[in-house]
Simulated assay, not measured.
Amino acid sequence: MAKAPAALHAARKAVGEALDPEGLTLVGCSGGADSLALAAAAAWHHQRTNGPLAGARVGAVVVDHHLHPNSVEISGRAVRQLKGLGLDPVRIFPAQVDLHSADGPEAAARTARYRAFRTAMKELGATRILLAHTRDDQAEQVLLGLARGSGTRSLAGIPRQRGPFHRPLLDLTREDTEAICAHHHLDPWQDPANSDPRYLRSRIRTQILPFLEEQLSGSIRESLARTADIAAADAAYLEQDAKEVFAQLLEDPDHTGILRLKLKPLREEPPAIRRRVLALAAVAVGAPNPSFERLTAAEKLITGSRSAGPVQLEGDVSVYRGARGTAEYGKLVLVPPPR
């Protein structure tokens, strides 16, 4: 076998830090170069007989979205290669994609995929799943966040870990994963959706990022990924601060589920914390994460709007400022959706 590419050693090190040394770790695999490279790095640990991760159990899950006419064949080819690497167990799980979702086909497929991952974890008794997002994916995600104007958390891009999901390859490139696959004589599947201009992410990948590299900087992908790391640290700090402020300002909820926040100290918080506290309160009473527009409208109730509300948030949640002369005066009140 030819000399291993430097990226393989980096991948093995990063994967080793993400594996559960005592439980079953699954590799989420589509059959593409990124996830096969991740599987190859994980298999190296799976087969070791010494060291701190000796005996670490690594399997794989292939999610079949049934969106490609040859999806059964594609999934089967991925399974054969994963078993050839020595991973065990290796299973295919179907994903039920809502093609009529208002969020669009990409978001619907993602929702279905993560649902299948959780089912796989439960059925196979796994404790975590490794996903094969790379630095290229991170750069694309940051550009998507910029396009949507979604704030610090969106610019933070793809998290390295969230719950049981770990992404150890975020410091590697797509070119690195292709080199790892070539070294192991793996045959990755090329998903045509990755270059389909109907999808925004595909246009970013095939048109916008290459244009920015040519016209702005050849290191734009690294710069965007670095932006994600910085924004992630900032967002985590602000979110933790907001959680502490939320706990301090929240009055004990009554049996109706209505939440009341002390208005004056909330008004004195900086906007970055104030908005996050509002979002936490909205989610606590049953709303999805509020949009920027709805959050801005609710924030005006805190900062001195003549109107006391109510302001409607997503999920049928309403917010108003307690009226003078009532027990709710000096409080911001969030009312859950009717049952």
Results as ranks from 00 to 15, higher is better:
276 R>Q: 14
263 L>C: 09
261 L>H: 05
258 I>L: 11
275 R>P: 03
276 R>P: 10
226 R>M: 02
218 G>P: 14
258 I>R: 10
267 R>W: 05
227 T>I: 08
218 G>D: 15
252 D>N: 11
242 A>M: 09
257 G>Q: 10
265 P>K: 09
221 R>V: 00
254 D>F: 05
246 F>P: 00
268 E>G: 06
230 I>A: 13
267 R>L: 05
213 E>R: 07
218 G>R: 15
251 E>C: 08
244 E>H: 09
229 D>H: 06
225 A>S: 11
268 E>P: 00
234 D>N: 12
247 A>N: 10
278 L>R: 00
260 R>Q: 10
277 V>P: 03
250 L>V: 12
250 L>P: 01
228 A>Q: 00
207 Q>F: 03
249 L>Q: 08
222 E>V: 00
219 S>K: 07
235 A>N: 15
222 E>T: 04
214 E>N: 07
261 L>A: 08
204 I>K: 00
244 E>I: 06
251 E>V: 04
206 T>D: 14
266 L>M: 08
259 L>Y: 04
225 A>K: 00
210 P>L: 11
266 L>N: 01
229 D>S: 03
273 I>W: 07
217 S>A: 13
249 L>K: 04
274 R>V: 13
248 Q>K: 02
276 R>Y: 13
249 L>D: 14
207 Q>E: 15
210 P>V: 04
258 I>F: 11
211 F>Y: 12
247 A>R: 11
207 Q>T: 12
256 T>G: 14
209 L>V: 15
274 R>Q: 15
240 Q>F: 06
253 P>V: 12
239 E>I: 01
269 E>R: 06
220 I>R: 00
219 S>C: 10
232 A>P: 10
255 H>D: 14
227 T>H: 06
271 P>N: 14
248 Q>G: 07
263 L>P: 06
272 A>G: 02
271 P>T: 14
245 V>C: 10
215 Q>V: 03
220 I>M: 07
262 K>L: 08
226 R>V: 02
205 R>S: 02
240 Q>A: 08
212 L>P: 05
223 S>A: 13
217 S>F: 03
264 K>L: 10
213 E>Y: 09
